[in-house]
Design a protein around this nucleic acid. Structure first.
Length: 408
DNA sequence: AGGTGTTTACCTTACG
DNA sequence: CGTAAGGTAAACACCT
């Protein structure tokens, strides 16, 4: 199993390859491990019980926002998403097992059970661009999760906090002549390294937080409420997404850095700026509006993991030339009854592994998602087993990956 | 001024 | 119980 997972296609995503579809695949990878499509499917279904695909651009009218049930329900002020600190800290009675049938796209009362890191990743996935702006992330989240449309804007602070703190995310500075505020963000391919190092850790699953109002409402309202609509997301998909989240939410990877957990009252004299990432050769500036795609079938992980040459240099890496787009192909998968298109273009980000096989947990998670299960086989593959592969195997695979540096 | 980005502090919960 | 992780709040700096 580890093998199949590790056996990465020697294909590297060609960033420019079919930006439109995002489904192009280099080679027919192990079909099964190619796609996060399930995630998309999941999102599509969960966020859109009616099955229609929303496109941020086209969202205006068709977006959940347009038909925001929150406006229909009784006055409810999510205000602060959670009582105190986190969604997990809700008092007894406010929490409930993650409902299988919650329509997060339209239900303003239930906070999505995903960490902010996951949400950010999802937004990035939904984006066809290699990078995404903060505002685009906001937009995607609000477009796809009704809860955040009504929640206190402090969640945006958390998003920013996450972007800055989570090593998964790389800030891509805006070009000098590029108009607009702030920079762009992308997933740091480096995180992939840590995955193979066995850093994968299992984490708790975030419970779903339900506002008291919602609870009350639930006990009164029948199945007519939006939140009570039949769920279109299967539990397995949810579970997978959770696993993804478990692996992606990585904060404080900062090696060696003192854990922030330790409270320090003494403010540091002067803030040490985060190691500046060299300006990247921006590919193209896309309209933020067009950057995102709702959770629909066109994930472009390749784009997400694509590194700009500068980034590569930043990491002190030598990047291989991009693979030919011609090598892309489509892979069809049927997962749990859902037919999905697998973007085989996606290839594991490869660090020249010179200094380590230290792959990022997030990468593992995403990779895992790319190959969440073996339909014909034993079903879902837990991430752990993936590490059982011998070093030799890993090394070999790494080599393949390295050759795939194409994604850069 | 407002958005963006960074950092620190602190809280809550889950896990070993 | 200690720690890790995620979330929240807030201060502050920078930039448009």
């Amino acid at each position: 199993m580890a093998e199949s997972w590790l056996r990465l296609p020697g294909a590297g995503p060609a960033e420019e390859a079919a930006p439109e579809s995002g489904l192009e695949e280099p080679d027919a990878l192990d079909d099964s491990l190619t796609s996060l499509q399930w995630l998309q499917e999941f999102s599509i279904l969960s966020a859109n019980p009616h099955g229609y695909h929303q496109v941020p651009g086209s969202v205006a009218p068709g977006s959940p926002l347009a038909a925001d049930p929150a406006c229909l329900g009784p006055p409810h002020t999510p205000g602060k998403p959670t009582s105190s600190s986190t969604s997990r800290s809700a008092p007894p009675g406010m929490q409930a097992p993650p409902p299988d049938d919650v329509d997060y796209a339209t239900n303003p009362h239930v906070k999505p059970p995903y960490s902010y890191a996951t949400l950010i990743c999802m937004a990035m996935q939904a984006s066809k661009a290699t990078k995404i702006t903060l505002s685009a992330i906001y937009k995607w989240i609000t477009d796809n999760f009704c809860y955040f449309r009504h929640a206190d804007p402090t969640w945006q602070n958390s998003i920013r906090h996450n972007l800055s703190l989570n090593k998964c995310f790389i800030k891509v500075p805006r070009e000098k002549d590029e108009p607009g505020k702030g920079g762009f963000w992308r997933i740091d391919p480096q995180y992939a390294e840590r995955l193979l190092s066995g850093a994968f850790k299992k984490r708790r699953l975030p419970p779903v937080h339900i506002h008291p109002a919602f609870v009350r409402q639930a006990s009164q309202e029948p199945s007519t409420a939006s939140w009570a609509r039949p769920l279109t997301v299967n539990t397995e998909a949810q579970q997978l997404l959770r696993e993804f989240e478990e692996a992606t939410g990585e904060v404080g990877w900062a090696s060696g850095e003192g854990r922030p957990g330790h409270k320090r009252k003494q403010p540091l004299p002067k803030r040490v700026a985060k190691v500046p990432r060299p300006p990247s050769t921006l590919l193209l500036t896309q309209e933020e509006q067009g950057e995102l795609e709702p959770l629909k079938g066109n994930f472009d992980w390749e784009a997400i993991f694509t590194l700009d040459g500068e980034l590569g240099s930043l990491e002190g890496l030598e990047l291989s030339p991009p693979l030919s787009p011609a090598s892309h192909g489509d892979v069809d998968l049927t997962v749990h009854g859902h037919h999905i298109d697998c973007p085989a273009t996606w290839g594991p980000p490869v660090e020249q592994a010179a200094d380590s096989l230290d792959f990022d947990e997030t990468f593992l998670a995403t990779s895992f998602l790319q190959h969440p299960w073996d339909e014909s086989g034993s079903g879902c593959l837990p991430p752990e087993p993936l590490f059982e592969a011998g070093d030799a195997t890993l090394a070999a695979d790494l080599q393949d990956w390295t050759s795939v540096g194409a994604f850069l």
